[in-house]
């Protein structure tokens, strides 16, 4: 039972991270369209931000691994 709950929790965390990374992607695309000359900086920061959000989701997933 706790395993199922943990899996649901991990899924919720992934939904949150997905929304977050989606927002980053959409805003980065808008920014690149507005200022194509800054594409390098925007891309690097986009990846950095996505990685930070991913970290939060990963903690949830690893916790779900341990709760059995």
């Amino acid at each position: 039972m706790t395993g199922t709950l943990a899996a649901l929790g991990a899924g919720l965390a992934v939904i949150g991270a997905g929304i977050g990374i989606g927002n980053i992607g959409s805003k980065a695309m808008e920014a690149i369209a507005r200022q194509p000359e800054a594409v390098g900086d925007i891309r690097a920061n986009m990846i950095l931000m996505a990685a930070l959000i991913e970290g939060a989701a990963l903690i949830a997933i690893i916790l779900a691994f341990f709760v059995k």
Binding site: A51, L52, E54, G55, A56, L58, I59, I61, I62
Partner: peptide, 13 residues
């Protein structure tokens, strides 16, 4: 401590 923890988990996962 969370910073290195997420570094570890991100690459591994």
């Amino acid at each position: 401590f969370i910073k290195p923890l997420t570094l570890m988990l991100r690459l591994f996962a």
